[in-house]
Write a protein that binds this DNA or RNA. Structure first.
Lengths: 201, 201
DNA sequence: CCGGTTACGCTACTCAGGTAGCGAAAAGGA
DNA sequence: TCCTTTTCGCTACCTGAGTAGCGTAACCGG
């Protein structure tokens, strides 16, 4: 290693300041100037580490992700809605962040901005996909175990199924603008498991 | 009516200029200054009619929507993938808009920005929902007719099913960053119709 | 302890989206 | 014809994200 080393405490204080701002004032309220000031560094230093505000916001959300494990009771009809609800809880938390009290608007806030950020910066998109990959792995494992147990069809298209379930959650929050609760998660799982054609169990 | 009337040709020339910019240079390239210049009006006039760039972009996309009718051959296993593919075609078109030739990045571009725009401005969100409502109505009618024909379960949760199908498309393009083609649409429909549990037809 | 290298902080700047304020133009009504 | 109302175009400005350039500080190897 050559040259002056980076101050090791900067990352932490920046993420802390940025998290506060993002959670209390929402995406628009996450001002790089103010983050730098609160973290006690110069704005240029901030931009040396996170090249855009979008990168910074993603770093914050990445940290916020509770590293939830999946609970596998052996009953897919219980475990799957439970896991979907966990995902939805994260969505709803982000969705609520930064809304003024009493603001009933179904704004998707941070989640929506991160979707756009992924579209704007390829590397942010890559990082987000890595974030989702963890979740994807967990869900796939859950489904495959259930399949091996005989609770799901042997020739099930696991990827398509998970896309449908997770997709419906995002669609509801981002496009339809409605919140996602336990009851909705159960409707999804029930519909997906039973199938749409007649004479199914 | 009192007062000076609005120039009636402004809307058309603005939308035309904005459409060109959006399609050739993407969302970031949709510059209000340049739109105004190309449309031959002052920027302030532009902002009197569309209060933000997001509003303007939505107006453009709204116009671009091909007012596709659904083809109902009576076979849900054909009609449904066909309709999903139409939706996906719109997504892919927006997704490609503004990318440099040879840019292989799976950027979701305009669609992603519109999702964020809906989160930023409640009224934009409302307008988008109206846009989607049309599609929703068509799909629901298709599904309900198939149900009445006996091709789908009588107690099917039509809303959940459509959320899953449409949601999977959006999830794939916006989150996973992968394109959506006919084969994928058919996988979705097959998975959704058959269901995930064993012993289904 | 000296030269190379990298990080830091500062000031000043660019650029894009959006706004304020004003005078002039285009209508309708009295 | 004059008054009111609304739109238009213009210039000037504001704000927030991001950058350029420079002097200085911190570290490493010789």
């Amino acid at each position: 290693m050559v040259g002056r080393p980076r101050r090791s405490d900067v990352d932490e204080s920046v993420i802390k300041a940025a998290t506060e701002l993002l959670l209390t004032r929402g995406y628009a309220g996450l001002s790089p100037d103010e983050v730098a000031e609160r973290a006690g560094i110069a704005k240029t230093t901030l931009y040396r580490r996170w090249p855009t505000k979008d990168h910074l916001a993603l770093a914050v959300v990445n940290r916020l992700q509770d590293h939830d494990e999946i609970t596998d009771t052996g009953d897919i009809r219980r475990d799957l809605p439970a896991y979907l609800e966990k995902i939805a809880a994260g969505l709803n938390r982000m969705r609520a962040a930064g809304r003024a009290p009493g603001d009933e608007d179904a704004s998707a806030g941070t989640v929506a901005e991160l979707v756009a950020a992924a579209a704007r910066h390829p590397d942010v998109g890559e990082l987000e996909r890595q974030m989702y990959a963890r979740r994807n792995t967990l869900a796939r494992a859950l489904l495959e175990k259930a399949r091996d147990r005989g609770q799901l069809r042997a020739d099930l298209d696991v990827e398509a199924l998970f896309d449908q379930l997770a997709g419906a959650l995002y669609y509801r929050v981002l496009i339809t603008g409605l919140p996602v609760d336990r009851a909705y998660a159960e409707r999804l799982v029930d519909t997906a498991l039973r199938g749409a054609t007649p004479e199914n169990g």
